[in-house]
Nucleic acid binder design. Structure first.
Length: 373
DNA sequence: TTTAAATGTACTGCGCCCAT
DNA sequence: ATGGGCGCAGTACATTTAAA
């Protein structure tokens, strides 16, 4: 069956794949995109991903036996990708199995109470599930084997959506009281077993990627052959909010996402009116819609960082945007900015999607922009 | 049967008006 | 000056209906 390569711009293809399925992240692309560009550039590594998300790029590189480095500004993304990309020994698996068997024995009331600055997690879960989640989280914190602890914690974070009365809808969490919420305890056990099964049955052997918490605009990338990445899209989605439940449970801090929100790439509409002069390639729209100007000047910094450290170039998966009824060709604008910096660019892959905006729907592109040095 | 279009959804941030 | 009320645009969408 032949598929349009553009279909791999979504997480759909990753859903059934070992390791990749450990944490659902609808914003992610899928491994075939990475494989496509590894082949496109005849890559021998190392590969760099400045917006690594849940680590599809480093994990795919590991599977191909290539070295890679990845960064992200989200502690959740860094945690998820580190856990997915780590090497696990037989001892680790044994320890995990033992830990899981005794996990709910001699259970005590948790003293940890899960809270979050923007909304109360309590309202999204049944009393029982909320209580179970608090217990599991606290117990993980007390575990001695940190590697096993990370596996368990990622499992817990990944089952939140199916255990709660909410759905992620665009830029918000939507309370959905009629939604079926499965018992957190069972979902958690099942998830851990799935993860251990993946490690045992389809282990990925290859160089362990290096993954850091860092900002693509200011981080100096290590020298690399190739970058493969997908930056945040030009829209008003605030990921520190959409993933606020996971972030706050991960850190056990009420204000976990505050710092991230302050520092994030300015791709969503905020009150932040601090202006730097937008790149000219963005055109007059950058002045009319400040967030667009901010987005492109942020992305210019990123491209400059990449230019300095990359050997061949790389690929950027981006979606075009519609703001105030106007189609903004993000792919072409980024390409032109790259050109000024010194890259050549082309757009070898793209797909159409329908942007549901008023007054009329518009067809916009989701594209892979290739930069060559 | 497959694909495109139409409709449904709830919540956010912003700008504007207007009363304090 | 401040802020509440309100309408509007917008949502890496989801589900249903119509068209090819």
């Amino acid at each position: 069956m032949r598929r349009d390569p553009g279909t791999y711009f979504t997480f759909e293809a990753s859903k059934p794949l070992p390791f990749h399925r450990w944490f659902y992240y609808k914003e992610a692309f899928s491994p075939p995109v990475v494989d496509y560009f590894l082949e496109y550039f005849s890559s021998t590594g190392p590969v760099f991903d400045p917006f690594s998300g849940i680590g599809t790029t480093p994990l795919s590189c590991k599977a191909s036996g290539l070295k890679s480095t990845a960064i992200d500004i989200s502690p959740l993304a860094v945690f998820a990708s580190r856990t997915k990309c780590a090497d696990y020994s037989e001892e680790d698996i044994g320890a995990a199995k033992n830990e899981l068997k005794a996990f709910f024995k001699n259970r005590q009331e948790p003293s940890f109470s899960w809270d979050f600055e923007l909304f109360s997690p309590r309202k999204f879960f049944s009393k029982r599930n909320y209580n179970d989640i608090c217990f599991i989280r606290e117990k993980i914190e007390q575990m001695e084997n940190q590697k096993v602890g990370s596996l368990f914690l990622l499992a817990l974070l990944s089952i939140l959506p199916q255990s709660g009365f909410f759905i992620k809808d665009g830029g918000v969490l939507r309370l959905e009281k009629s939604k079926s919420a499965i018992p957190a305890k069972h979902a958690f056990k099942k998830k851990v077993k799935q993860m251990l099964g993946d490690i045992e049955i389809s282990p990925i052997s290859g160089p362990e990627p290096e993954i850091f918490l860092a900002d693509a605009r200011s981080f100096s990338p290590p020298p690399h052959e190739l970058f493969i990445t997908s930056p945040p899209y030009l829209n008003n989605i605030d990921y520190s909010k959409v993933y606020g439940l996971e972030l706050s449970l991960l850190s056990m801090e009420k204000n976990a996402s505050l710092q991230m929100r302050r520092e994030a790439l300015r791709s969503f509409i905020t009150k932040d009116s601090s202006r730097s002069e937008p790149p000219e390639e963005a055109g007059e729209i950058a002045h009319r819609i400040p967030v667009a100007g901010q987005y492109f000047s942020d992305m210019e910094k990123v491209l400059q960082n990449l230019y300095k450290s990359t050997e061949k170039g790389g690929a950027l998966i981006v979606g075009n945007a519609v703001l105030q009824g106007e189609h903004i060709e993000v792919d072409r604008i980024l390409g032109e900015i790259g050109k000024r910096i010194g890259f050549e660019y082309e757009i070898p892959l793209w797909m159409e999607r329908i942007a549901d905006v008023k007054p009329a729907k518009l067809k916009v592109r989701e594209s892979a922009v290739v930069f060559r040095k």
